[in-house]
Amino acid sequence: MTTLFQQNIAEVSVTYSHSVKPSNQLRVTGSKSVYEYVYPLWPDVEYRERFAVLLLSRGLKILGLSWISTGGVSGTVVDAKLIFQVALKANASSIILLHNHPSGELRTSDADRRITTKLKDGAKLLDMDVPDHIILTSESYYSMADEGEM
């Protein structure tokens, strides 16, 4: 028997499909490996800014890549709730933050540093690590961890 109350509550479904067997998952060995894995998948790197997260197992194997937002030529919105939603669903132990700078500029902005700090603080509450935030361009990358900004 369905009541009016039950009819007015939507069912929520969040899915994660890990179609890659653990033995075939790529392992992150540093910022260069992340760039080499992710750059070929990155659409229109010189056109508009995008933000994504790389979801990692405890053994630093890649569980998946999740596109968080697509913006304009000078920025994109980063919603922490969306990031942690996918990280929790994938049972990620750590997340690497990724975004591109269409301008080709590799320096971090104040906004880049603020969102990194915010997400690192949120991850701590969930017993997750944020080992790096990588900025991609068509020619190279910048690792905040490698440069001592993490």
Score class of each variant (00 low, 15 high):
M1P: 11
M1L: 10
T2L: 08
T2I: 08
T3M: 04
L4A: 08
F5S: 11
Q6N: 14
Q6S: 15
Q7N: 15
Q7L: 11
I9K: 10
I9N: 15
E11D: 12
V12H: 13
S13T: 13
V14R: 10
Y16I: 14
V20C: 09
K21A: 15
P22D: 15
S23F: 15
L26G: 14
V28L: 12
T29V: 02
S31V: 13
K32P: 09
K32D: 15
S33V: 13
V38G: 01
Y39E: 01
P40F: 03
W42Q: 04
P43N: 06
D44G: 13
Y47A: 02
R48Y: 00
R50Q: 04
R50L: 10
R50V: 01
L54F: 06
L54K: 00
L54T: 01
L56F: 03
L60I: 04
I62T: 12
L65M: 13
S66V: 08
S66L: 07
W67H: 14
S69E: 02
T70R: 01
T70M: 04
V78E: 08
V78T: 03
A80V: 06
A80Q: 12
F84T: 15
Q85M: 12
V86M: 04
A87C: 09
A87M: 01
L88I: 05
K89S: 13
N91F: 06
A92G: 11
S93T: 09
S94W: 03
L98C: 00
N100I: 05
D110I: 08
A111G: 03
A111K: 09
A111E: 15
R114C: 08
R114I: 11
R114T: 09
I115Q: 06
T116A: 14
K118W: 04
K118C: 04
L119T: 00
K120R: 14
K124I: 06
L126N: 14
L126G: 01
M128T: 01
V130M: 06
H133K: 02
I134R: 02
I135D: 00
